[in-house]
């Protein structure tokens, strides 16, 4: 009788890439639904467009490379990339810009470097930055949350705007859109207004923009789910949010009238989404325990620096891309001590 042979270990664990990515998608659901609730159908339409473009692009590249596209598509990594990109986009972005960003993320940032596991940069954030620097007008044209505007765009109106690129009859972009809280804080601060004054506006809630401030909680919920399922570990989210809180707290303590308080930083923009879902992208992040702490802390620091003194209102994408570049170096200098290795005995 002849038996099958294999290499040890003969039994392997239940984990696989599809499961990991599926878990990430599941964790994104509450935050995504919250965004839909506050910003309307545009969020879901963007999501559909981005995912479709990403999947088509990935399949096309795989066939050009003469490889089987099925296992690559089934690992769901392209869907995760597109989903994260879509969440970062303004809800009424013209469809072709979403397609462009999504395809750039998959084709250039991911596949040209060798596909999953080989991309040095976070594809979703690179796609977002491409769109932000290429189309600054449409990319900063955010909607006010429904709770603020008191009106919601219908599905038909959303589709019309996204696919025609023009506002519906009788409306202009000025009546439709509004600045994000980060944007507003920034421009009003530059006009030398006090924070206490800025916060008098009906747009402001308890610690961030009304509506906006609650979305972070739903992403936080998803992030905690990922922590619980051990898809991500605590180091990057904790160090990133921790350093953001610490630095913003320090400046706030020095001058609370020109520096927003720490919770504002935490619950505005993409801080929480970034901490749990974007900075933790394993492929482009640091992998050593100490390295992850440094990596996260530096992202938090850069977010504060760019938000406060940089040219763009939000900074998660830029900070993550900057630290992506530093990750291999961080890893090199933070290798853990091997069992039995004496201190200061490093080869």
């Amino acid at each position: 009788m002849e038996f099958a042979t294999g290499s040890s270990p003969h039994k392997i664990g239940p984990q696989n890439v599809t499961r990991v990515m599926g878990m990430v998608l599941l964790a994104l659901v509450p935050g995504t639904l919250a965004m839909w609730w506050y910003f309307g159908w545009g969020v879901l339409i963007n999501l559909m467009i981005a995912v479709t473009a990403a999947v088509v692009a990935e399949a096309a590249v795989m066939s050009l490379r003469g490889r089987d596209a099925r296992p690559v598509l089934l690992d769901l990594s392209a869907v995760v990339t597109a989903w994260l990109l879509a969440l970062a986009l303004p809800p009424l972005l013209p469809w072709w810009q979403t397609v462009l960003g999504s395809m750039f993320a998959i084709v250039v940032v991911k596949q040209l470097f060798g596909g999953i596991g080989y991309n040095p940069f976070n594809p979703a954030m690179a796609g977002y930055v491409l769109l932000l620097v290429s189309f600054p007008v449409t990319m900063t044209r955010w909607l006010p949350p429904d709770v603020v505007s008191g009106q919601a765009l219908s599905l038909a109106d959303s589709l019309h705007i996204i696919f025609s690129g023009t506002p519906p009859l009788g409306q202009t972009w000025d009546t439709l859109s509004s600045a994000t809280p980060l944007d507003q804080m920034r421009s009003e601060l530059s006009e030398n207004r006090m924070i206490s004054e800025i916060r008098q506006s009906p747009l402001w809630g308890d610690f961030g923009g009304r509506g906006w401030e609650w979305i972070g909680n739903w992403f936080l919920l998803g992030g905690l789910f990922l922590l619980w399922r051990r898809v991500i570990n605590w180091r990057i989210p904790a160090s990133m949010l921790g350093s953001l809180l610490l630095v913003s707290g320090l400046f706030w303590a020095i001058d609370p009238e020109t520096h927003p308080f720490p919770a504002f930083h935490l619950f505005s923009g993409a801080a929480i989404l970034g901490a749990f879902f974007i900075a933790t992208d394993p492929v482009s992040a640091s992998t050593t325990p100490k390295g992850q702490l440094i990596y996260g802390a530096l992202i938090g620091l850069f977010v504060f620096i760019i938000r406060t003194w940089g040219g763009y209102p939000d900074a998660v994408a830029f900070s993550v891309l900057l630290l992506n570049m530093a990750a291999p170096t961080i890893d090199y200098y933070t290798q853990p001590r091997v069992f039995g290795q004496r201190k200061h005995d490093d080869a």
Binding site: I12, V17, S77, G115, P282, T287
Partner: peptide, 11 residues
Amino acid sequence: NDPERPCIRCG
């Protein structure tokens, strides 16, 4: 053994 897939550096 299942077919090997690229490392995603999950750590």
